[in-house]
Each structure stands twice: as C-alpha cells, then as structure tokens.
Design a protein around this nucleic acid. Sequence first.
RNA 1: GUCCCCAUCGUCUAGAGGCCCAGGACACCGGGUUUUCAUCCCGGCAACGGGGGUUCGAAACCCCCUGGGGACGCCA
Length: 504
Amino acid sequence: MTTVRTRIAPSPTGDPHVGTAYIALFNYCFARQHGGQFILRIEDTDQVRSNRKSEDDILSALKWLHLDWDEGPDKGGPHGPYRQSERSAIYQTHVSKLLEEGNAFHCFCTAERLDEVRKQQMADKQQPGYDGHCLHLPADQLREKLAANIPHVIRMKVPREGKCVVHDMLREPVEIDWAQVDMQVLMKSDGLPTYHLANVVDDHLMQITHVIRGEEWINSAPKHLLLYQYFGWRAPVLCHMPLLRNADRSKLSKRKNPTSIGYYQKMGYLPEAVINYLGMMGWSMPDGTEMFSVQDMIDNFDIKRVSLGGPVFDTEKLDWLNGRYLRESISDVEFIQRFTEWAFDREKLHAIVPLIKPRVERFSDVVNLAGFFLSGVPAITAESFNHKQLSPEDSLRILQFTAWKLESIEAWHRDRIEQALAALAGLLDIRIRDFLFPVFIAIAGTAVSTSVIDSMAIVGLDMTRARLRHAMVVLGGVSGKQSKKLEKEYQQLFALSQEADDGQ
RNA sequence: GUCCCCAUCGUCUAGAGGCCCAGGACACCGGGUUUUCAUCCCGGCAACGGGGGUUCGAAACCCCCUGGGGACGCCA
C-alpha cells in the first residue's frame, strides 16, 4: 500500500487567505488520519503577481495555525524544490515530451486575435475557447517562426469529441464533454508553465496520492486527467471541497469579508479557534461536538462527511467559539502569556513608540494614545464624522475611494500610502487635512491622534480595510446602486488624470 | 451565452426509507443567577425551495422546474 500524500499549493500573490487555510486543514487531516504526509508547495509561476513577502506571510500564517507540513520550501524534502519558480527545467523537459509525442503544439496567436475569437464565440452562443488556429501548422512554417523568435505559447491537444468522466470522492462521477475543454496553454511565452501543467507534473513527481482542492477546479479536472494520461501516469484521487461564501453566497472575497488570516490574528482570535471554526465549515464531528481540536478532527476524520452546500463564512459563531477557548480552555497563566505575546509584539512596539513618544507626559497616556493599534474596530458613531467642511456623503466617498486606492498599492509602506492618498485628495480637490479627517476616524476613532498614514502602515492592509469598511457601515453603508455610482466616479477621476498626463 | 456543481431553521449543521409533525449550535427573544455588565443556567422563536413519481412509508431514491454558486485567461 502506498503512503497517502496530500498537499496545499498556495500562490503567493497577496495576503494569506482563510480559504487556503481551510483547504490546507482538510488536506492535513486526511493525510494525518491515514498516517501519511502533508506537503507545502509554492505555486509562483506568475512572475508578475508572485512575491516573496506574500510567500513568507503564507508560511507564517499556516505555522500560526499549526498546520505543519512534512516537506516544503523552508524545510526541503526528497522531492524538491518545492517552489515552482525553481523547477523550470523540469517543466521544460516534460513539455518537450508532450510536443514530441504530438500531445501539445506551438501557438503563435496574439492576445488580440484570441480576444476577437472569444468575443465572436460568445456572440454565437458557443463555448468560448481556442479555435485550433495553430494546431496544424506545417513543419516548415513552424521552423521558420521558431527561428524568427516569434513569441509563442505551447498548448495541449484536447479531443474534440467524446466525454471525460471525473471521479470525485464526494460526488457522483462528473461527465464533461471534451468539446467543453479548452486547448489550454501549458507553457506561457515567458517559458514558465501554467498552473495546469506545473500542478500535474509536480503532483506526480511529489507522489501526491490525493488532491483535495476547491470546487472551482472541477471544470479543469479533465485537462489534468488528460495530462496524466499523456504522460502515462496514474492520476491522484480527486476531491473537490465546497467553496467558502460571503453572506450573499458568492465566493468568499476580500471586498465583502476579511479574508486575510493576519486579520484574525490581529483581531485576537486564537489559532485553535480559527481552525476549529474552519473545521465546522462543511464538516462536523460524528457526535456533534462543536468545540474540537485538530487532533480530535483527525481522530474522527472522514472526508465523506463533508457536506457540499457552500458554507457562509459568518464570523458570529467564530466569536462565540473564540470566547469559549479564551475562558474555558486556557489557564490564567496561559492567558497572560498569550495575551502578552499578542499585545506586546516587539516589532510592532518599535513602530508605535516613535509615534506616541512625542505626545505622552505619563505612561498612563499610552493606552489612550496607542489603544487603537490593538483594538479591533474603533467604537465610533455617525456623529464621530461631523465636520464643518465635509458632509457624511463626502466622508463616505473619501472612505470608499481610499479603500479602493489602497488596494492598488504594490507595497504596503507608509510612503506609498501617503503618496496614494495625497494623489487622491488632489484629484478630489480636497485639502489633504480635510480629506484625512474621516480616515482618522475610521482608523483611530478620533482625529486627535498619531499620523494616520503611519498608523495604517502599522495595522496593515487587512486591518485598514476592515476599519474602513466598518466606518462606512457606521455612516449608513453603501448600497449596490451607490457603489456603482461611486465606482464610475472613481474611474472617471483617474481617467481624467490619465488624460492630463497624456497631454503633457 | 455555454458547461459543471449544489439545495434542511437568518447562519453552521445532524439526518445514508420508518427512531423526524426533523435534532444540536450560533444569532435573536424571554426568564433565573450576578451590586452592574458579561459569563453561566433554563425556556422560546425558527427549516426539509416547488411539482411530479417510486414505496405500505420519503427530508432521505428518481425526474422536471426554480433558486444559488462556480468555470469558461499566456491568474492560480
């Protein structure tokens, strides 16, 4: 019997996501239950979006949750490297094999042409997909184009008829017509593989036996299965988990919910409570126990007990659960220790102290001055936003625009934040002083406070986002209609500034 | 638009044909304990989306409808 091996394969393109932790948890439990191994692999083949900071954050978030892996980029293992960007040569040789055996082909189509094709197909009520333009390129033409160094990708060949049956641990076999499956790009023009290729190659080479992943992958499973077949490999067992949802049942997103694991850490949730809560999403203990540890979960684990209705990630129950952990499962001594570690984070204090030191006369001033760095969302009301120049609508607009603007910052650094907000205030033609007022209220709860720019830099993007959102709710919230209107206004603002730039 | 998945209280769920006029938990509402509040305890509210079958019997099985979600990128 072969050893069960599962993996979590996050892409380091942003804050560590609770969805990653969720999928990791189920992979972890499944592996542990079977005495197998759990592997961490970093899928950083997107050169543009991947970054090391995000990778580090993901690793520490998973460590915080005690979802430890047996092999991974930080600890190595027999099937490394565990970072896809370091495996280029492996993908190259595999893609060459596909090419040689006629299971893949070079494609020189431009993005513009493909866009056109897709548009036309949509208009004709067809399933959009590659039209096979470069599929039968004559050998001499191919040689010519390659010699001329024309940018190209490599696509996989996909049968045009018949159907693929996808077996899944949690549902009936899923039948998908091959005609529905696109001739997926396997290797991008930058020479790096796409998810589909890298994933299959790595899962095989890393001897992954069970792939437990989000339901969003079901439709691309045929591509993966076909690749296993092309390579002559045995495919792992597939299992597609339900997706975590926002309150409106759409796929969990940072726009509608705090999704960053860091946010929950900063809010003072205990990792065991967060894990316990994630374990309750789509799964339950056989005896109905609600408070359970990962070990309890492993001891009673049965993947078949996963229910497929997408669970709403509603933190009310998490709050209750976290409260129980805090008051029932840890001693006073442990409470003191863990609270202290949480509150008096050395690094954070080093950032905070220079801001408050000029403003204190006694240590007793510190709590009032720096309390908001630790508190979740400040206690504010609509009245907190009263201002002689700004109406509540103005404040709402500023907060929403600020939230959007901050999303586009490439590095979370005080100078970048300052620059972004100054630009925004300029475009809105509001004095920076006035512009910053509602931001102060949202972040610090009061305008009598340390620099809000530095404060945001310290509390982080996830917490900033949560506080801005809370402030908007306090101000009456933004309806779908308003949001659309604001979005339009926001885009126009930047379109205008773009024109001005072009004119220079 | 095309394809795929899903469907029990507001939310998380139990339920693998009779134990279910559906059980637990959160939230909410009452009551008790507490100098207050919280905790804690007790009680209440509240669901099988609709329609057809199959069966002696259906929340459970089948079909249709409806609803929700996802996928359709040189992103993962």
